[in-house]
Amino acid sequence: MWRDALLVAGKDLRVEWRSRVGLNQVVPFALAVLLLFGLALGPDAARLRAATSGLFWVTVLLAALLGVQRSFALESADRAGDGLRLSGLDAGGIFVGKAAALGFQLLVLEAVLALVAALLYGTPLEGVGVLAASCVLATAGLAAVGTFYGALAAGTRVRETLLPLLFFPVVAPVLLAATKAWSAALGRSGGGGVGWLALLAVFAAAYVAIGTVAFGPLLEDS
């Protein structure tokens, strides 16, 4: 399974490296969203600073949706997904591989976004350890849920509209916990950072486990 996961993750990252869709489209999109939030809430600096963590994570969620859609668009073009199934790869491995590739790309995106958000909203990045840890844990959860629902929706004819409806409500706790962890790290709210990290870890662990087990039946249905 791990070997299959590495293979699939490597393939997805290689495709991204060659096509640069994430870099040329998803990253600029996320930056545009950050700007739009600034327009909607600014120019009051205090308000923007207070809202930084929430705006950052909503932006990440939107970008994650695009990432999931891209990840499964790869497989539906030329029926490459059928190719994956035909080659007899372990379903759990495919899940972990695709989620890992997605998570890695999201982490890179988050690093860029965090810097830009700090600049735009005038929020100095403090408590970098907690910020980074919450990014890693939240991204694991987002990637797991996203990959799971991405595969579920990919088999249907209404995937563009179905995916957000399924994805966003389920990752609500990630948004909440990650936002609070960030607020705590940035000194916007009193403590609790570590507790929120634990919650993110539980969420990620639960959905990675479920996804690994349930991905096989899901893949065979599409």
């Binding site: 088999g155 399924l166 609070k180 709210s189 609790g192 249905d221």
Partner: peptide, 30 residues
């Protein structure tokens, strides 16, 4: 196919409920 897909989705949705409840309560208490 529909039944299996729906059942998996229901399970995934349902385990979210305690996590949501817990996180929101905690958020409020803080």
């Amino acid at each position: 196919v529909r039944a299996r897909r729906s059942a998996i989705a229901a399970l995934v949705a349902f385990i979210d409920v305690p996590i949501v409840y817990f996180s929101v309560s905690w958020w409020r208490s803080l």
